[in-house]
Amino acid sequence: MAYQVSIFLENKIGHLRKITTLLAENQINIRTMNLTHTSNDWGVLNLIVDFPDKAHQVLNSQNFSVALREVIALEMDDHPGGLDNLLGKVEAAGVNFTNAYSRILKAGGEAFLILDSADTEQAREKLKKLGLAPLDDETVYGK
C-alpha cells in the first residue's frame, strides 16, 4: 500500500521551498509530486517520497499541517496510449478518483500512475476484480 504525504500550503512565495529544503536536509528523496490549488489562496502539496513515515514525522515536528494518505499506484507503459490503456481498465472497474499524477521509471519503459480516490479500499477491491493489482511499494518508493 502506497502512501502519499499531503501538506497544506498557502500560496505564497517560498512556502513550497520550505518543504523541499526540510526534506533535502533529512535526505528524503521526492519520487514524484503534484500541487493542487483551489481558487482560494491555498492548496495541497502531494508527495510520493522514499520514506513517507519519516517525511510525515519530520514535517509534523516542524508544525506543518501534514497527512499520510493512502493512494493506489498502478503500472503503465511509457509509450503512446499507455495512460489511455490503463484508464480504460480503471473506467471498466468503475473507479472514480479525485486526483492523479504520474512518474516515469524508465523512458520508453515503465511508468506508474498515482490515483487518489475518496474511498481507497473500495477502489482497490474494484480494481482487483479486474485483475489490476497495485504496484509494489518498493518500486513506488524506489528502494
Binding site: Q4, S6, F8, T36, T38, N40, W42, G43, V44, N46, N60, F64, S65, V66, A67, L68, R69, T98, D116, A118
Partner: peptide, 19 residues
C-alpha cells in the same frame, strides 16, 4: 482559520466543505 494536522487529511473537498 488554521489548518491543523489533527484534522487535516490531505483532501481539498474537506477544506472546501469546512469553508
Amino acid at each position: 482559520v488554521e489548518v491543523l494536522s489533527n484534522w487535516f487529511r490531505g483532501d481539498i473537498a474537506r477544506l472546501d466543505g469546512l469553508k
